[in-house]
Structure formats: structure tokens, C-alpha cells
Design a protein around this nucleic acid. Structure first.
Lengths: 341, 341
DNA sequence: CTCCTCTACCCAAACGTTTGCGCCAAACGA
DNA sequence: TCGTTTGGCGCAAACGTTTGGGTAGAGGAG
């Protein structure tokens, strides 16, 4: 029933007639000092016995002693959101390479939950935190900063805290540019939630480019929404109603799921995606390419963003100072904006 | 720079002129013995100071002392797979309710990675493991069992180990039943990977029901595939080729992503989904309902499965013996199998 | 032979808890 | 009045590491 207690340094030391500190230095000590720790022969004996006994250093003892947990907490709105799952995969991969462990928690973009989860992570003595759910409308991050817990943001910027994100404004502009080239002059935006800077910046870039081109997007055709398909659908319904007799010829949704919802709604209005109305999304979810009418979208290097975020955090934990990173997005044109050609 | 050291039991004890053991019993001791630990007044003083100082028990010290980490490791093939993400959300939710922490790792359904991740988790001294990537073709689970590390499986059964899954065979039968009612006699199956029992059981249930009905599914129309859209697409291409002049009138794919790929392939063969050919999936991914032709699928209580899996593991860790749990699936009929009506 | 420098180790404290045991005083029973 | 209980705590060991400081002995320089 009771699992056999794992081998300890002491067990190895006793069996070899050595002191535990010697064994510790050989097995877990820094590689630089390893020659000075013990003679080659002794080191060899230690290593041999260690793996014969299946020695694994006890992380609790290690962390207790060193006050470093090698743990980083990751807060995401929803792991079931593909984008976040991919970001997290990047984080986890990079963490594993550095011998760090990560644990992820859902916050549902809800402040009390964010607070509770942050508290929980700090309670577990994480060395640092990565927030993928930064919000503009809360003091939480400032408070965490005041407590001197190292953290970085990923995907969604907020405040002036270090962040790894894609250049959302540029992405929005790229979509606008593409739609302008295709001749669309009356367009609408499914703009996502107001609290998410990602959504705000994508919208801003898009609207800005259209304004520059001389076709300002009417305010009532820029409507906020949730990030899911239902949100896209509802927002589009509102857009169609606001537009009345002159429906837009193109829709830009600030993420793919909203775009799918938007397309669904447009279809119900009797419009053929890609011919009667162009639809573009954002994030280039793997799904985008697989839809019956493949979706034009902006590819965001989500995996890489996760990796870089962890790198940044590691630097921060290591006491180095860091700046934000902005990765370039890339437009992927598909039939949903060219189907009528 | 250096974070202020968090308050410890000793700090509280000293400040109150008490002994650390007394403080420990009041703050962290079992609720049953709390009256015997200190007088009401003392307990009150302790609690007040504790939260004034923001005391949080040091988990490393606690775990070192008690040899319990309150940690469970979760291995999934791919967190970016929606189904797994939802299962994990259920696990995490249930874990949080019990004061446990979880951490997930991707194994990409690849045995060396599974081994490495398992080793890593055990190295972190988890109290137990949850495998969402059980395979029939490896000894890994048996080895873990031999090491007396408590674990349960979720979603995919394997061997005779305790598992929380849905009744996949029944699910397969339900789809068959539905297609039979709609008059389909020549059908094909996109059967998923051979190593996944989920896929095998869904296929088996489906094929079995068709055999009973007197329309055995020809072997060459049951083809293995990966779980993603590309896999579904390729498998369907092979099916179409094998079927030649008499293409099936219905396709059953053992998961939604494969079904989407299958539908894409069928469409390219000039078939209209729901009218010329029926397509059914499995899992009822949120997406299924949002497709242009909404997908008939089998709803699986994934969140609940995650919750129950954690419950089972907790029992196991607590020394209670446990049995497997099978939750009932539910058929959700949509236009992809009724569009022609 | 003395002094010094390495090499190859050992020593012991500390990290923050938990927990079986023990002790003192007050309350209680007879 | 004299045990005997019991409420309210303190004591100390232990969990497995890390790490700054030793120290004994070998070898070399002078």
C-alpha cells in the first residue's frame, strides 16, 4: 500500500561511507563546481549507485532550502480556447527545456476568479506568473507588481507591463488593406470585448486604415461582442439591423470563432460567404482552413508567443530586466474573401 | 528586489509568545481537533495576527514533512485538442474544490514522451496521476502500477485499469441506429487510430449494430485515420476510392474533427452534405453546431468525465478501492444527417 | 624540516512544517 | 484532603536538501 520511500541523498551517502553534502554536490550541484566536489572515482561511484537506486531529488526539500520552486503559474481565460491552449503549449515546452514546471488555471476572464487563482499560485510559492488574461479594467496586475512577484503578460497587453504579443494593430491594418484592394468600401467590424486590448487594437488598426483610405467605418457598424461563435452571431445580427437596406460587403471579426458565428449569421441572411459578403477573422485557428468556405485570417505565432513569454519570465526571475516583445502577424488569404473572384 | 520573506508560523508564534506547534495546530490542523489545540481566545489571537501578516503555509515544508504533495499530474495527448481541454477543465475544477493542484503535460500520443512526462511527474512527487492518453500497445501503465503510484485513466480506457469514460460502444450503436432509421444501408467508417480504444469501441458498436440489422459494413469501408481533420480527409479519400462506383450514402467518423475533414472530402467529390451523403461525428464539439451544415454528433459529458476522474483518483489516494465509471452518451441529430429530408 | 597549497572530503545549520509525547495547573470527584 | 482527570500548551525530532565553512593529509617549494 505505502509506496516505498524513494532513495535519498543520505541513503546513498551511508551506503558509500560518504557524507551527504558530497553526494549532493555531485548529483545536484552546479556543473561548474562538479570537478572540485569529489574525485572522479568517487563521483562515478555516487552516480552509479544513484541511478541503481533510482534516486530523484526531492523537490520539496530542495525548494524549502533554496526558496525557489522552479514553478511558474499560468493564468488563462479558458484553456478550451484553442488560441490559449496553443500559447500554453509553447509556454510548457519552453519551461520543460529550462527545468521549470508550469501549472495553468482558468479564470474565465472574471476578476474575482483571477484574484483567487493568483492568490493560489502565490500561495504555492511560484517563482513567477504568466497572465494570458490581462485586463485594462482592474488593479490586479499593479497589486501583484507591488508585491514584487515577477510576471509577464502574453497575448493580451495591459498597462505597461512586459508582454509578448503580436502586433495586433498591424494585423488589423493588413486585413483592411486586403479588403480595400478587393474593392470593399462599406465594411463592419465584430469588435470583441471592450476589456481586451487585443480586440481593441485589431479594431483600431482596421478602422484607422479605412479612415486613411477615405472610407471611415460608421460607428454603428463597429459592435462589441464576446469572443465565441455566439458572440459573433449576435454582433452580426446587430450589424445587419443597423445597416438596414445597405448591408456591408465585408465583415472583419477580431477572432476566428466570432468570424464563424458572423458567417453563420450572414448565411442566414441569405448571403453567400466569399461572394455576397467577405468575412475575415483573426488568429488563423487550424480550423479556419478546414471550413467549407475557408476563412481568411491573420496568422499569429501563438506557440512562439508562449515560448517567448516564458523566456522573458525566466529573465525576470533571473534578475535581468526585460522589455516587451511584439511578433509580426501574417495575413492568410482564403476563399471567404475571394470566393466571388 | 528580493521579495519580503513570507510570514512563517514561527514569526506568529514569537510575536504572540506562543510555541510554533500551537500556531500550527490552530492554523493548519485538522478541524476536528481545533478545539483541543488552544483556547478560544488564543486561537482568535492567532488567526487575527495570521491574516494581518498575510500568512500562507509553505507548501514545500508541508509536503516535505507529510510526504504528501497534494499534486496530481495529468497527461494528455494534446491540450489543444478541445475534448482534452474540456476534460482537463473538469479535472482542475474538481481538484480545486478538494484543495489539490494539478498540472498538465502534452504527450503527443508518443510513447517516449509519455514515459518522460510520467517520470517527470513522479519526480515531482505527485500524489497521483491521471492519464488521458492510455494506449493498448504499451507496458507503461503496468509499470506505473507496479511502482504503486495511484492513477486513473480518463476518456480512453486501456487494460483493466480504473477509467472514467463514456460508453463508446453504445455511442457507436446510437449513430448506427439513427442512420438505419434514415434508411442508409451502404455506410463507411472513418475509424480513428488503432491504438485508441475510444476509436475502436465506437467503431465496434457501430459495425455491430449494422451487422445485426443485416447490412454488414464491408471491411474496406472501415479505414483507420488520425484524429484530426487531415486524417478524416485522407481516410475518406481512401473510402471513396475503395467504394468506386457505389459510394456510401453515409459516413460515420469517430470524432468531430475527422468528420469535418470527411465532409470536406465528400464535398470535393461533388456531394452535398446532408443530402447526397450523411455525415456523423462524435464528441459534439461546440463547433459541431456552428458549421454551415450543422453536424450530427454524439455528445459526451467531457467536463463531468474530468470531474469524476479526479474524484476516483482522490478515492484511490485516500486508500479506498475504486471501479471504473461509464457515462452515457447522447445522440444530437443535426442537418448533416437529415438535410435531404 | 617547515611552510604552503591543493585535493577531497566532512560538519552543521538552516529552510518551515507536523505530530507524538509530556507537563503544569486548574477543576473535579469522593 | 488527596488523587485523578483534562484543558492548554510546549518540546523536540524529523522530513531531504543546500551551502558556507572547515580540516586532514598529500605533495611541492625553499
Amino acid at each position: 500500500m505505502a509506496r516505498a520511500r524513494p532513495a535519498t541523498l543520505k541513503a546513498i551517502a551511508d551506503q558509500l561511507g560518504l557524507h551527504v553534502s558530497t553526494v549532493s554536490r555531485v548529483l545536484n550541484g552546479p556543473p561548474e563546481g562538479s570537478e572540485r566536489a569529489a574525485s572522479g572515482a568517487t563521483a562515478e561511484r555516487i552516480r552509479r549507485l544513484a541511478d541503481e537506486l533510482g534516486y530523484r531529488r526531492n523537490p520539496h526539500a530542495k525548494s524549502l532550502r533554496t526558496a525557489r520552486s522552479d514553478l511558474v503559474g499560468v493564468l488563462v481565460p479558458q484553456l478550451a480556447d484553442l488560441v490559449l491552449a496553443l500559447v500554453y503549449e509553447g509556454i510548457e515546452e519552453a519551461a520543460a527545456e529550462r527545468g521549470l514546471s508550469t501549472f495553468v488555471m482558468n479564470t474565465r476572464d472574471d476578476e474575482p476568479t483571477q484574484r483567487a487563482r493568483t492568490e493560489l499560485a502565490i500561495g504555492r510559492r511560484v517563482d513567477g506568473l504568466i497572465f494570458a488574461d490581462g485586463r485594462e479594467d482592474t488593479e490586479l496586475l499593479a497589486e501583484v507588481a507591488a508585491r514584487e512577484v515577477p510576471f509577464v503578460l502574453v497575448n493580451r497587453p495591459a498597462g505597461d507591463f512586459p508582454v509578448v504579443a503580436c502586433d495586433n494593430r498591424a494585423g488589423g491594418r493588413m486585413v483592411a488593406e486586403h479588403l480595400l484592394e478587393r474593392g470593399h468600401q462599406r465594411v463592419a467590424v465584430v469588435a470583441g470585448p471592450a476589456y481586451a486590448r487585443t480586440a481593441r487594437e485589431r479594431t483600431a488598426g482596421f478602422v484607422e486604415r479605412y479612415r486613411e483610405a477615405g472610407f471611415p467605418v460608421p460607428e454603428e457598424l463597429v459592435v462589441h461582442s464576446r469572443f465565441d461563435t455566439g458572440g459573433g452571431r449576435e454582433a452580426t445580427a446587430r450589424i445587419m439591423q443597423a445597416a438596414g437596406a445597405e448591408p456591408p460587403t465585408a465583415l472583419f471579426a477580431v477572432n476566428d470563432f466570432a468570424a464563424i458565428g458572423a458567417a453563420g449569421c450572414a448565411r442566414e441572411h441569405g448571403l453567400l460567404i466569399g461572394r455576397d459578403i467577405a468575412v475575415a477573422g483573426f488568429n488563423d485557428t487550424p480550423l479556419a482552413a478546414e471550413l467549407p468556405v475557408p476563412l481568411t485570417s491573420v496568422r499569429v505565432p501563438v506557440h512562439e508567443m508562449g515560448r517567448r513569454a516564458l523566456g522573458l519570465l525566466a529573465d525576470l526571475i533571473g534578475g535581468r530586466s526585460v522589455g516587451s516583445v511584439h511578433l509580426p502577424p501574417e495575413l492568410v488569404v482564403r476563399a471567404s474573401t475571394t470566393g466571388g473572384a
